[in-house]
Nucleic acid binder design. Structure first.
Lengths: 247, 247
DNA sequence: GCTGCGCACTGATCTAGGTCAATCGAACAC
DNA sequence: GTGTTCGATTGACCTAGATCAGTGCGCAGC
């Protein structure tokens, strides 16, 4: 929560027509929800644009008091906890447009750490303000319920007992779909995280991730060059990830 | 959602002072949230008491349209999905007082199956009504956010890569705490689910669950007799489950 | 150019837990 | 009582993936 170059009163230099940043999921949601100028007073304290965070900088740490959720504007954020034996358990990667911190509401503290993997820009949304606004904008309330509910499902995905191949395929297809939905190429993208991060996310050893990548490449499913990924056999990868991504 | 002996207009025979059933988490929440008689009109369609469901009967199935969340009044409910190879993945067990179906909001369909493990009584809460009410009762809205947020955390617990011992210990201590918080004995309780269900929940083979139970018994951590559990060395079990249950 | 550093990769082993196959035993029907 | 059934248990293997130990290699600093 200690952010560099914080801009209080977010709307200040964004122009009058853009009360939410273009990449935020809430933007559309709020517009659809009957937002109008009469809500402007709240909006002035609702959104706060911050960043850039440098690679390795923390957005918040486990135990920090919670009062805002964040939308990624650019870059990638990793959330993780450190378990009893000091091992890092990666909980998720957040791409532009995705929302971080919904799991912090219940205990009013962030239950995990969040760190930027590259140069990251964020919007902070004051949660109390958001909630207050939601009582007057049923569509916004519904959107929040929906986002929260989605995150329950996402968290459950990881928990099945799947093979290293299935996990890895699902990880790649998941990224591909998410990039595609933001208008990036679904078939060529850069991994912004290390093999170790991927492994900690998939509950594998980083060596296993290397081996699976290599085998996928040998079998013509994809091309891997360092952190560059090219999907070559989408159908086969979809097939492998079907049991995890469901449908 | 095809319920036996449904009572429409839930309040009918519950007495005027008890607009929510005593075991429902919402009961307290709504009372704290400024609930008063003026909300009575909504309440008449908000809650619907149903049951009993017999062992093995389904409350809902994957893909059913969602319009209500359920609070368990008595008995145990198991939620699960069936993966591509036909294996059952148990997502959770729900004890009296716990809420089922929050993960269905996002897609307006239940994403899993729910089946009763013994004789089950439920309250259904119409979710649209609940949400509408929440716009006028900020405390209720907050409570819903909190429940949803909690479920994200719960779903993440399973997903770590922990040993069979840790998983099993965490499962037992989790049950123990949940029973305790409902006023039951934390040290002696009956498992309402089969070894296979436990194994499918913990992502182990049922044989492994048997072996861990036996070893825990040999080491004096607990006494197991069929489905009866007695916790003997709470400290050691807490220790084993610490990395999963986190504090 | 060289050197050093940190990932990424690869190969050789090890092991936790899965799988397979019996056996046991409580609960129920008769 | 006697079967019968179905989950639980136990033992004997086996295997996916972890671990350990190098090796390779792009890149930054000089």
């Amino acid at each position: 929560m200690t952010a560099p170059s914080r801009k209080t009163g977010a709307m200040a230099d964004d122009g009058d027509d853009l009360h939410f940043c273009s990449t935020c999921a809430f933007s559309a949601a709020c517009m659809q929800s009957g937002y109008d100028k009469s809500h402007l007073k709240e909006l002035h304290v609702l959104v706060e644009h911050v960043g850039p965070f440098k690679e390795g900088e923390h957005l918040f740490r486990e135990g920090d008091p919670f009062n805002a959720i964040a939308a990624v504007r650019s870059g990638t954020v990793k959330t993780y906890v450190t378990d009893a034996n000091g091992r890092e358990q990666v909980q998720g990667f957040f791409l532009p447009g995705e929302i971080i911190g919904l799991n912090a509401i219940s205990h009013s503290r962030y239950p995990c750490n969040a760190v930027s993997l590259d140069s990251v820009l964020l919007c902070w949304f004051s949660f109390p303000t958001m909630a207050a606004l939601a009582t007057r904008m049923p569509g916004l309330q519904q959107q929040l319920f929906k986002l929260l509910s989605e995150d329950i499902g996402k968290a459950a995905l990881l928990s099945g007992n799947y093979s290293a191949d299935e996990r890895t395929a699902a990880f790649l297809m998941g990224l591909s779909r998410r990039y595609a939905s933001r208008g990036f190429s679904p078939n060529r993208f850069l991994l912004t995280m290390s093999r170790t991060d991927i492994a900690n996310y998939l509950r594998l050893a980083s060596e296993s991730v290397s081996r699976v990548f290599r085998r996928f490449q040998d079998e013509g499913l994809l091309r891997v060059d360092r952190r560059e990924i090219e999907i070559l056999d989408r159908a086969r990868l979809e097939e492998l990830s079907r049991s995890i991504l469901r449908e």
